[in-house]
């Protein structure tokens, strides 16, 4: 974390932003404008100008991020400054308007600015927490490798399923086929199905293990088999688990079945990881869906604000 944009240059930009805030607050306290504090005093104009420059500069980050050549300072520095100056804007903007809020475009512009900054803060929070989560979720691996692992599991599972029973094989093939397409972007439904299958299978494997070792017998009625069949008979995943559980109780389950269960379990774990990976990766991008449009809206609102203020 020593090199993170938060700590860039020993918090240089935090210090600059704090300094700016302190100066602004000091001036605001010291200044005795005509009438209540507002944008309509020399301090108001000054803070407004500073704020405008900061906003334009902050929005420029979107351009700077894509300028890959001829750049003098690293993007890390820019981001660090972006984050701290954006936060300082909260203070400067509020002091600029002198806590005057009303139902007009000026307050709307202010609200847009605050929303932008808040979305940025969410972004910072995500940027600081999510990368670690991604790494912790897919340990020492990557999504590509997980997909490959699942491919391998699928292949093995099909092979084993074929050796167990043609029904099991059919269902297995069908579930694999239906999840194949969605796996790249696991939809919630497919994932939930897989997770449910995983849970069911876990139960089943327990039962399976018991019947294998003959330690304890669990009556089929105790299992969610009937439940599953009724729940969603058209759902191939559910049917697959039903068949498997059925098999594990009604026929001799054997080693193959146990292997298949393990594989399905493993696949469910992988899919869960993939899902989390997708969720985390989306989290890293989704806040930009708010931050960028809001910041541009703020820019437009700012222009309208300035035009209207200077025209009147």
């Amino acid at each position: 974390m020593n090199r993170s944009f938060i700590r860039q240059d020993q918090f240089l930009y935090l210090k600059i932003a704090l300094g700016l805030c302190c100066i602004s607050i000091f001036l605001y306290v010291v200044d005795d404008p005509v009438g209540p504090p507002s944008g309509n005093s020399w301090l108001g104009y000054t803070l407004g100008t500073v704020g405008t420059l900061i906003i334009v500069w902050l929005v420029w980050f979107g351009v700077r991020k894509r300028q890959y050549t001829g750049t003098r300072y690293s993007l890390t520095r820019w981001l660090s400054a972006h984050v701290y100056m954006g936060t300082a804007l909260l203070v400067i903007g509020t002091l600029h308007c002198g806590f005057q809020f009303d139902d007009n475009i000026h307050t709307m512009a202010y609200i847009l600015m605050v929303l932008t900054i808040l979305s940025g803060m969410i972004g910072v929070y995500y940027y600081l927490t999510v990368p670690g989560l991604i790494s912790a979720n897919i340990k020492n691996s990557n999504a590509q490798q997980l997909h490959e692992t699942i491919d391998q599991i699928d292949r093995k599972a099909l092979e084993i399923a074929r050796q167990i029973d043609s029904h099991v094989h059919e269902m297995m093939a069908y579930t694999i086929h239906t999840t194949l397409k969605e796996r790249r972007h696991p939809s919630k439904k497919v994932l939930m199905d897989m997770l449910r299958v995983g849970e069911t299978i876990k139960e089943a494997s327990k039962a399976c293990y018991c019947s294998l070792t003959k330690e304890e017998s669990i009556a089929p009625s105790d299992t969610p088999v009937s439940d599953l069949k009724q729940k969603d008979p058209s759902d191939p995943h559910m049917r697959l688990s039903a068949i498997i559980i059925d098999l594990s109780f009604n026929r001799s389950p054997g080693e193959k079945l146990q292997q298949l269960l393990d594989l399905i379990n493993e696949k469910a774990t992988c899919i869960h990881k993939l899902h989390l990976d997708r969720v985390y990766n989306r989290r890293l991008k989704i806040w930009l869906m708010f931050h960028v449009p809001l910041s541009l809206a703020t820019l437009i609102a700012l222009v309208i604000h300035i035009v209207s203020v200077f025209y009147y």
Binding site: R3, S4, F5, Y68, T71, S74, L75, T76, L79
Partner: peptide
Amino acid sequence: HQASGPACVQACPTGAAL
């Protein structure tokens, strides 16, 4: 060719690339 160093490091927003 770039005075500021490798573009990949230069373009990393969070300082992750070294």
